[in-house]
Design a protein around this nucleic acid. Sequence first.
DNA 1: TGAAAGTTATGAATTTGTCTCATGAACGTG
DNA 2: CACGTTCATGAGACAAATTCATAACTTTCA
Lengths: 301, 301
Amino acid sequence: MHIEFRHLRTIKAIHEAGGLAKAADQLHITQSALSHQVKGLEDQAGVELFVRRSKPLRLSAAGLRLLRLANQVLPQIEATLNDFTGLRDGSSGRMHIAIECHACFEWLFPVLERFRKNWGDVDVDIRPGLAFDALPALMKEDVDLVVSSDPEELAGIEFIELFDYAPVFVASKDHPLAKKDYIDATDFRGETLITYPVERTRLDVFSELLIPAKVEPAVVRQAELTAVILLLVASNRGVSVLPDWVVREVIYSSDYITRPLTKDGITKRLYAAIRSDERDKPYMQELIKLARIEARKLQEA
Amino acid sequence: MHIEFRHLRTIKAIHEAGGLAKAADQLHITQSALSHQVKGLEDQAGVELFVRRSKPLRLSAAGLRLLRLANQVLPQIEATLNDFTGLRDGSSGRMHIAIECHACFEWLFPVLERFRKNWGDVDVDIRPGLAFDALPALMKEDVDLVVSSDPEELAGIEFIELFDYAPVFVASKDHPLAKKDYIDATDFRGETLITYPVERTRLDVFSELLIPAKVEPAVVRQAELTAVILLLVASNRGVSVLPDWVVREVIYSSDYITRPLTKDGITKRLYAAIRSDERDKPYMQELIKLARIEARKLQEA
DNA sequence: TGAAAGTTATGAATTTGTCTCATGAACGTG
DNA sequence: CACGTTCATGAGACAAATTCATAACTTTCA
């Protein structure tokens, strides 16, 4: 036999009730059960837990030691169980986010900043590493939310619409294309295009414009950070295509010009992919709400 | 079902081994048992403990919380069990001492002071309150050692000889009786006798001298503290009879004289009464040894 | 993509352990 | 000393954990 929580509860109850019989009532078991239990414990520990010579059954030195253990340990269990109800009812949980779209940092960061305020018990993280396998990771519960613009039909996964955005052409104000009202695929011929360092199929400018039109820019140069891309564009080292929420920040800067792609502009939609069973968790809903608000703010700026 | 230590050990093992099967080996039970156990736990707690979608069975948020509990709690149990082996093998325990003889503080305190150094795990205390019922208290395990000068035949109790001492007459150097070489019972007639505040039968001067001789002092005055008794004696407010280990400290002081009781002197023997089943405990033996040493030192002083 | 290997889940049977019931023993009290 | 209280004990009832056998699932590798 091993020492178990049951025994700690027993010791504590006997001590507090001041006797087997009363403790037994309190624990809703018989006095006999307690007696057996104590005996078992004593056999196992090899020490007497109670002083039996006197009637009001007092704790021995060893018994007191065990009581101390009980007083340490039982509250810790309580605390754990409480945390569990938190996890169950959704006031705490995990929110590890994978972003397929590089520029999403821009709006996601402020969102998480606000989210953190009200949901301190939720463990928040961004996992940039797995841009590729984001959806498999979501299914495997490696992450809990994926920001994506390509909804797929997947069992147990659903894509929740966040907001629409437009990929927008950005160039230096001195660039020749600044003269045009809108930009077509053919305009990229001979240009240096600056993109995030991901495969082309995952870049709007390629998937929506250049690949269908079978146009290849003169040079494709990659930069990790949005700020760096803008820097390169400003100094006329190339042109780029960025989501409107990014360029909105620079739209009034006299260094840049922005133009729609194609005459009618291109619109894309961003989704939050989550596991269906987490859709109703309150913090999940909250995060999505915050994302929509934040996006609107950025686009209205 | 309740959460039990078993479950904590299980969670910990699964996490460390990285899988049910390996953990099962480690715990010397079958993989099936672990699976059932985890299932039971999850049902009980109402939360998923593991992420099952991926193969190497990872802990979920709740699982991690439980692991934290395990890492807190299991060492505490270990510690308790270790303390128990201490209690079993006698390196720790309780040493609550009742003293029937008031003056015993004088030598007992230094003894306990030294005892404490080597037996820090033993809970030491002096219980002055129960001078009367000291022996019943010993039987009931209210105390563990009684210092007494009256051995009795009691089941489960044995009296271990500590050392011999002599009750000695003390008076001011200016007292008339200072002229005598030894003091008889009749010398107390007309004197003020200062004693500890206990019943006469438990005072050597009465039990050994005055009661047999049917002598009553003029006044019997009581004082709690040895120092106070000596103070009163020094200022010639009365005479007293104290154990030699006490007066040895003042013997060279020019304020006092000490004289033997009766021509041949009276010798008494002090005992440690303990429960027989504790006789062989190492700290018990040590305490008795220290008591003898201390007494010799005091009497040789 | 389809075995093969490895890992976890499940159901029924079995074993183990815990509890209850009935009763006895010990203690304290009037 | 009888009586009420409190704890201990043994046998049987019951509940729970474990095992065995096997299914279901994942991952890996060809």
